[in-house]
Design a binder for these strands. Structure first.
Length: 454
RNA sequence: GAGGUUGUAGCUCAGUUGGUUAGAGCGCAAGUUUGUGGCACUUGAGGUCGUGGGUUCGAGACCCAUCAUCCUCCCCA
């Protein structure tokens, strides 16, 4: 028998952890619902075509591909071998793999919208809470299977959507108690303007990739990388000016106007940031011109939620506007904007900062002691009564020493026990004990109601 | 994909320059206590030292390989 184990980067979640995770899911879900978003689910796997080429070159490598079934069929051996040769050259071959685990929720959503745009009422606001998979190397805050909670609005260009999404971030993190978060925003239009201004519109991706690393590797290394990517000194000087902008959000907007306001696309980007900054009125909102985000389908405002600086986890959510996402699937002119929460990282942050409230751990509210065959019949009937009133309770599975039953309640963090022994049966009563305070009283069984156990 | 770390009881970890029967704390089980838990005390169960090979009279320790793990880079949630 081989030792049991888990695939790298995946985890089991025990009861306590699931409760804490659900607390996060429920908070996010209720805020999404509060803002008028509707739920959607898509399959764990997609056709490989749907995913490939949507996440950049690096992204393609991180997609988990699923090996086709039936490759052992002797009739197909020759073809399979030929296909495998192509795989060794780094190509994807339908003969071997035509499905893959989904990498994020946005592209499957775009695929869904493209397939159903005739039936949907626009603007369509959907939220989606599902696992995604990445063939990444696991490390701190990084898993191969993790959950994303996405909210997107498609079919609307209104900046109101961006404002709403910013507020969703704020509401969720505030409710969860993650008050030290920072919501960074930028506009891809400014990055486009910068690239155009530098005379290298086609260099936009090179530029964004490089400046995205600023806080990690520092200005000098960014300049080095820009040079490596083929930019000349004059262009790099302009980018340096762009990166040097600091101050309050208002200061930054003023300075960026001076630098890029003369370009139409630059002016548009500035307007976007101004609007979101002014209307959302979130304290933790930071305009950050170095924010670039890797996904190359963003075209307008981009978001990144950063964990409090004390926990070195970095991004706990991100998103942005994409003007033509479904265009990739043959349905042009459906603009959208969306955000995503990384639950697994939010969990790690909350664990580290001890932000889970006490009540999260409570499952069963009342444990009925089992003191013998006869006694337990009364206990069972009483328990069923309480369950009808919505009280979560259980009867100890066998007659055992009270010691043992108390310990069981203690371990499961059960707040109350009800003891019904031979004496109590005679008087039709039960002993109700509060395990937190140690207080107990003997009450008629008829008086046991849900109000007692809150 | 590149680099590094660690692997000893269910968990967290000790284990000296290589030396006889591998330890502790927590947890678990039983008891002190046959109707009142958490505390205390007593007793007990539990380890092919990740795996395979090598060096040695002798390996948990040294060497090689391998697997797993965690971390860093890349990229991301």
């Amino acid at each position: 028998m081989a030792k049991p184990g888990l695939p790298q980067g995946t985890r089991d979640f025990g009861p306590e952890v699931v409760r804490k995770r659900q607390y996060i899911f429920n908070t996010i879900r209720s805020v999404f619902e509060l803002y008028g978003f509707q739920p959607l689910e898509t399959p764990a796997m997609e056709n490989l075509d749907t995913l490939m080429g949507k996440y950049g070159e690096e992204g393609d490598k991180l997609i988990f591909k699923i090996l086709n079934n039936g490759l052992d069929n002797p009739d197909k051996h020759q073809q399979a071998r030929a296909d495998f040769e192509k795989v060794l050259e780094g190509k994807n071959v339908k003969g071997l793999t035509e499905r893959a685990l989904k990498y994020d929720l946005t592209i499957p959503f775009a695929r869904y919208v493209a397939m159903n745009h005739g039936q949907l009422t626009f603007p369509f606001k959907r939220y989606q809470i599902q696992p995604v998979w990445r063939a990444d190397r696991p490390q701190k805050g990084r898993y191969r299977e993790f959950y994303q909670c996405d909210a997107d609005i498609v079919g609307s260009n209104a900046l109101l959507n961006e404002v709403e999404l910013a507020n969703i971030y704020n509401d969720v993190f505030t409710q969860l108690g993650v008050t030290g978060f920072e919501l960074r925003i930028n506009s891809r239009k400014l990055l486009a303007a910068l690239a155009a201004f530098c005379g290298g519109a086609e260099k936009m991706i090179d530029i964004t990739v490089a400046i995205d690393k600023l806080d990690k590797i520092g200005l000098d290394k960014v300049k080095e990388e820009l040079a490596q990517r083929g930019l000349n000194n004059e262009q790099i000087d302009t980018i340096e000016k762009y990166l040097a902008i600091t101050g309050s959000n208002e200061d930054k907007l003023e300075q960026i106007s001076a630098l890029l306001g003369h370009l139409e696309i630059g002016r548009k980007g500035i307007e976007e940031l101004e609007t979101v900054n002014r209307q959302s009125a979130i304290d933790n909102l930071v305009i950050d011109f170095t924010l670039a985000r890797g996904l190359n389908y963003y075209t307008g405002i981009i978001f990144e939620a950063k964990a409090p600086a004390t926990v070195k986890i970095g991004s706990i959510g991100g998103g942005g506007r994409y003007d033509d996402l479904t265009g990739l699937f043959g349905v042009p002119n459906i603009p959208g904007v969306g955000i995503s929460f990384g639950v697994d990282r939010i969990y790690d942050v909350m664990e580290e900062l001890k932000l889970f409230p006490e009540g999260v751990y409570t499952g069963t509210q009342v444990l009925f002691f089992n003191l013998g065959a006869e006694e337990s019949k009364t206990a069972f009937a009483t328990m069923q009564n309480l369950r009808k009133q919505g009280v979560r309770c259980e009867l100890y599975h066998e007659a055992a020493k009270m010691n043992k039953q108390f310990n069981y309640a203690e371990k499961k963090n059960i707040g109350f026990v009800v003891i019904i022994g031979s004496q109590e049966i005679q008087s039709n009563t039960g002993v109700v004990k509060n395990l937190k305070t140690g207080a107990q009283e003997t009450l008629p069984l008829a008086d046991l109601t849900n109000k007692l156990f809150i």
